[in-house]
Structure formats: C-alpha cells, structure tokens
C-alpha cells in the first residue's frame, strides 16, 4: 500500500467501485454455479465473471495504474480481450462434450442431434 496515499479521492472511489463490482459479480456467478440444478444451467454462471467480472477488475487496475503512474496504462485491456475471445471456445467445447456424453447415455432431457445427418454422411463417405 505504498502508493495508495497519494491517490486523489475520486480515483480511489472509482477504483473501489469497479473492484467491488467485478469481484462481486464473480462471486455471484460462483454462487449460481453451486446452486443451479443442471449442467446446462451451470454453464451460464461463469459468464458473469468473464463479462463484467473481468471488465470491472480490469477497469479498476487500468484506472489505478494510470493515475499512480501519471500516464495512460492499457495493458490490462489485453487480459479482457483474451478472456472475451477464449471463453466462447471453452464453453462451446464443454457444452458439446456434455451433449455428446448425455446423448451417448440416452438422456431424454437433451435434444436430439441436429448434426446427426452430417455425421452419418461423413461416416458413409469414409467407408
């Protein structure tokens, strides 16, 4: 806490607000992650942390280092961009894996394969 004393009051309030917003959203997302009943519903919970949860913490960090350093600092933005680009890939792959496993077990609550005909066609082409 060496640099915090010479921070102007407005910057301290802005940093605190964004910090609490971001970590609060991440926490609420994780509460939902433990409380929601099925996997496909739980899939939505971490997106709270990846959208405005990350956004809030990144904004707080950007404001803090810009004010303390006396020059604009943007490099935290890379974390935000990186998370935004990678989350769809991980969630999409996980959802497909879960769907594949549920269909293989014959779970009646998941919809039938919309790609069944193409998969079958691809298998036909192979043989």
């Amino acid at each position: 806490m060496s640099h915090a004393a010479d921070l102007p009051l407005w910057a301290a309030i802005a940093v605190s607000a964004f910090l609490l917003l971001g970590s609060g959203l991440a926490l609420i997302g994780m509460i939902g992650f433990t409380r929601l009943p099925s996997f496909y519903q739980r899939l939505h919970a971490p997106t709270l942390g990846t959208s405005w949860g990350t956004g809030g913490v990144v904004m707080a960090s950007m404001i803090y280092f810009s004010v303390v350093g006396g020059r604009p600092v943007f490099h935290e933005l890379l974390v935000g961009i990186f998370v935004t680009v990678t989350t769809p890939v991980t969630l999409m792959l996980l959802a497909q894996a879960a769907l594949h496993r549920d269909r293989a077990e014959g779970d009646p609550t998941v919809p039938g394969s919309i790609a069944a005909d193409t998969e079958a066609a691809r298998d036909d082409a192979k043989t």
Binding site: G29, Y40, Q41, L43, H44, T47, L48, T50, S51, T84, V85, T87, P88, L91, M92, A95, Q96, L99, P111, I114, A115, D117, T118
Partner: peptide
C-alpha cells in the same frame, strides 16, 4: 458465437453448417 456466449444467460451449444441450424441454451 462470441456475442451469444459472452452475454450471460445464453450459451451457444451446437451449430450445423449444412442446414444452418444453431442450438442454444437459454437460462
């Protein structure tokens, strides 16, 4: 896909490119 996934409450599950059908899950 990025839009649908980064909006909490909607998730992109599967896309069939030959028919252009998207399967999504809504909370």
């Amino acid at each position: 896909a990025v839009i649908i996934t980064s909006t909490p409450g909607t998730a992109w599950i599967e896309y069939n490119s030959s028919e252009g059908t998207l399967l999504m899950h809504i909370l």
